[in-house]
Design a protein around this nucleic acid. Sequence first.
RNA 1: UCCUCGGUAGCUCAAUGGUAGAGCAUUCGGCUGUUAACCGAAGGGUUCCAGGUUCGAGUCCUGGCCGAGGAGCCA
Length: 435
Amino acid sequence: MNPIVEIRNVSLHAGQEVLIQGWLYNLRESGKLLFPLFRDGTGIIQGVIVKSAVPPDVFETARHLTQESSVRVTGKVREDKRAAGGFELEVANLEVLQQIPAENPYPITPKEHGVEFLMDLRHLWLRSTRQHAILGVRHEIIKAVRDFFDERGFTLVDTPIFTPSACEGTTTLFEVNYFEDKAYLTQSGQLYNEAAAMAVGKTYCFGPTFRAEKSKTRRHLTEFWMVEPEVAFAHLDDAMTLGEELVAFVIRRVLEKRRAELKTLERDVTKLEKCATTPYPRLSYDDAVKILKEKGSEIQWGGDFGGGDETILSEGFEKPVLVHRYPSLVKAFYMAPDPQRPEVALCVDMLAPEGYGEIIGGGERLADYDLLVKRIEEANLPRQAFEWYLDLRRYGSVPHAGFGMGIERVVAWVCGLEHVRETIPFPRMLYRLTP
RNA sequence: UCCUCGGUAGCUCAAUGGUAGAGCAUUCGGCUGUUAACCGAAGGGUUCCAGGUUCGAGUCCUGGCCGAGGAGCCA
């Protein structure tokens, strides 16, 4: 029996006869020669079939293989500079598991396709090299995020996806039936994270998040993944430092482990290399408004940045930039005010370079019981729903800070993608619930 | 919700108000080193839907549906 070999490992088997299990990626033909490309999820290898060297039925079977038909192929691995990847497979035999009929061929051809067509066929689109590379980078980013927090003594504490009410009361939530009651899909693990931080000191949650906003831009999904650390006894500066160290760690890891994928995506890695070290530039909201006004933005002090403003700001820096101390009025009720200037909050947004915009948002939480009660009332939130949250200020309240990082926006930035819809296997958007 | 653009072969797109076409995909043929191979041939159409103008509509008009980009909105 020939050993079953993954294509990524064929170089270890040069000169040996092996078995590869996969799919036909493409087939080129040149007279009595066939060049089938096989993929198996770990890579692509070119096969060579010489008509005179194999039984006639093997040649005929191979000649009629259709794109994405599933096969088991045996053959000898040989180093050859003429093959992409440096190795090719001298095919000796070929077992077809399923031949896709010519009347109903695989719909995604090696040529160009439109976004709508590819999104309708997202379940098949994932097989293409480009999507494959993005999935690999996404995996590496998630792994790096977990390693980062695990190595620093954080405890993963999962927060609920069904929630009884709005966490913040500002954004639109997805409502679901919960037996005789109503529940909402979480928009943030934030409040539960604060409870966890009071229990274990340093915590993070990592899971899906849902927002029912009718946003239709390249930066928005209705379902996306967010990692949210929360640290007891931490202040705004600690959150900023943690954020920049996390992002730099992730960038270093991807540069170290996923060069091949970044090359497939034609990513300019020199731009990422500049972001692999800290510190990142820090900018107060006041200074950011000044810069934006100089560059012609309509922004006035007190207003939140629009998408265009974020782009202008981030384009001024080669590294991600930390914008801190926004006006309290545009931020959530639980943000701690700056004791020096109560009109601004101890919060921070990290804007990725190259116009990718906000990837992190967070800051120091309001630890004072009386002030928190006041803010809940000012925000017209149902006090009763927040009694458990107020307990965190009744029983041993301490300063604490944290943030949320949107995984898809980070993946889009690292991969250099136009749109976040390609960063998640099955995107959920305003007008997209299938497949 | 608003603005802009679009919808023609399985896919990507052409077509001055006057015979609906190309490339890719599929099938067949040619080629012993191809690299999104190449060369030749064939099959393949409710031009998004409904109305209207016209001798004649893929093209112009009205309404609708669907999509894309953006705005608003959005830690």
